[in-house]
Design a protein around this nucleic acid. Structure first.
Lengths: 235, 235
DNA sequence: TCAAAAGTGTTGTTGATACACCCATGA
DNA sequence: TCATGGGTGTATCAACAACACTTTTGA
């Protein structure tokens, strides 16, 4: 800190906040975890989850802390989305906010946390207006999700360890917000050879039941090392 | 500011800096604009260009200011790369740095600025070690540039308004760091219909001379609106 | 027995790749 | 006249898109 003072002290300092755009997939719908803000300004309005960075933590660390506090989950998929720093983005003062985009397996998110923090899963189509620039963060996050989903196997972050192909397809349809051809989808995803077919079927959605699969992370890693490109086309 | 005090004042504040990864293309080589740092810590070592954000400017504004001060150029292609905020990234104190990735037409960059700021164009392959986490910024920026170049027509940001196809191809080869087939490249780029063939030839590189082209921005915009996807494959 | 979701192949089209020779020109 | 870089076309292959019927089973 002594150094800090001597070299940089003539420069202004800013509050640094983090906002998390948290996606989940539940009942065939892509959802966002939001809540009603509990402090001024804009108390009571819908908002993303966020918090201020502390003196003794790094950025990523802070984002992980906030996600952990909110969900009790660790090792969540998370990446930086963008940093927002307009002068007047927060009416209560100058705040630089780093937006993070996270995917959580909704089934692992417990109600207990929901009650504690007033968190609510809201379908993307039923999203209320959010405070400040949070709407544009969500918009950008969705575009990022769409791009990522088509070039990296991140869909699996949103599903249980064991899932069916129709479930996976429904997830992609929710992300792309468009229908996908059943046969082509199966062919493509299975041809990559990164799904492990299990013995059991899941019968919650049909009488016939659909086979369960799991994602073979190791095999995927090897493919990537060999230059393989995961792609699921958008239309 | 009154509000700021009342609501947020219990939270710490941080220095916010910006670092610019500035690419240029000159003599068939992809280059980076760097300089020897003029203040402590790490004075005299190679560094990206950067600066601290001021109280009365937004993030993008600050990035544009820094680029303008350094190059005298406006309307430069620029996008946020990532925000770096490890606790110990700067030995002199806690600084959150937002890294920006910029493309400038090297031919428009004047020597005058170079002298004033000690700026130097260095080929990517001859890059000296940079201070702090700047090396990883550059690495990430290069990957970003490669991805962008293959899906958006940003190559033109690095070339003069009028350029030849061999020049354009050399640029792509420099970005991808690999050779590209001449005939396939031509076919692909011309089939998109966003290049306008001019009358003149450029004879600086061959006796025969190569026809000059310019990029048709309007046509490109229309194509994009119609759902067109610019792609130039990587290999 | 029937409703509802799971599962299955083929064909045409398109885009990517690989590849070798002639052209124009100034020195 | 020749050395240098500019310019051109075709054939093969892989990936994508379109498309309709059968299977299973619980109610």
């Amino acid at each position: 800190m002594a150094l800090n003072e001597s070299y940089y002290s003539e420069h202004p300092r800013f509050h640094v906040a983090l906002d998390c755009i948290i996606f989940g997939f539940d009942r065939g719908e892509l959802k966002l975890l939001i809540h009603k803000r509990r402090f001024e300004p804009a108390k009571g309005e819908w908002s993303l989850f966020g918090g201020f960075m502390k003196e003794d933590e790094g950025l990523e660390e802070a984002a992980n802390r906030i996600l952990y506090e909110l969900t009790g989950l660790e090792e969540i998929y998370m990446e930086e989305l963008q940093t927002y720093g307009s002068i007047d983005r927060d009416p209560a003062g100058r705040v630089i906010s780093v937006a993070y985009f996270a995917l959580i397996p909704a089934h692992r998110y417990s109600e207990a946390y929901s009650n504690r923090y007033g968190a609510t899963w809201v379908g993307l189509k039923d999203l209320p207006p959010l405070i400040m620039d949070h709407d544009s963060m969500v918009e950008k996050a969705l575009r990022r999700l769409q791009r990522r989903a088509s070039s990296q196997p991140i869909g699996f972050e949103l599903l249980p360890k064991e899932f069916t192909i129709p479930q996976l397809q429904a997830l992609y349809e929710a992300i792309y917000q468009s229908k996908v051809d059943k046969r082509n989808f199966r062919k493509k995803i299975l041809s990559m050879g990164v799904l492990i077919k299990l013995e059991e079927k899941d019968k919650t959605n049909s009488r016939k039941g659909a086979f369960l699969y799991s994602f073979d992370k190791k095999k995927y890693r090897k493919l990537v090392e060999g230059g393989y490109n995961f792609t699921i086309s958008r239309v």
